[in-house]
């Protein structure tokens, strides 16, 4: 399960970030922010590949001593970043992939909401509870 989930706008500012435990929120903000370096590189490396054939999942962005950071980018260049505990070996690439897909679907729902202004911070309850299901539960 993830310890941090983030949605980043096309212009690279955060639309949504949630992490557990909340004390280290700042640390995760930095971690997600620095991971954008790798995302940027990966996107520019993909270049002008055919849009519909493009792989949205970016894979492992970079490993740190304690965490693994994964990335995903939508066709509209909105990025999803997920931080997972390094000790959590149960999570395979496939699970991460499907988590991202779930996140993408839920994000699409948010975008379909006529009251949502694209580019605003996401404050949807449905999205929030979906993220909750993907996060590690702290008792």
């Amino acid at each position: 399960m993830a310890v941090c989930v983030a949605v980043i706008a096309k212009e690279n500012y955060p639309l949504y970030i949630r992490s557990v435990p909340t004390e280290s929120e700042l640390k995760f903000h930095y971690m997600v922010h620095t991971s954008l370096d790798v995302v940027d590189e990966k996107i520019s490396a993909m270049g002008k590949a055919l849009v519909d054939q493009r792989e949205l999942y970016l894979g492992l962005l970079y490993p740190t001593e304690d965490y693994k950071v994964y990335g995903y980018v939508t066709n509209s260049k909105v990025k999803f970043v997920m931080v997972v505990d390094s000790s959590n070996t149960a999570l395979r690439d496939n699970e991460i992939r499907s988590m991202f897909r779930k996140l993408h679907n839920s994000y699409t729902d948010v975008m379909c909401n006529p009251f949502y202004n694209p580019g605003d911070r996401i404050q949807s309850r449905a999205f929030d509870s979906m993220v909750t299901t993907m996060m590690i539960q702290v008792c």
């Binding site: 212009e11 690279n12 929120e25 700042l26 903000h29 922010h33």
Partner: peptide, 13 residues
């Protein structure tokens, strides 16, 4: 850098 990218929490810190 943090201001132009709009990472307010980091900027505040």
């Amino acid at each position: 850098d943090y201001r132009t990218e709009g990472w307010w929490m980091l900027l505040t810190s």
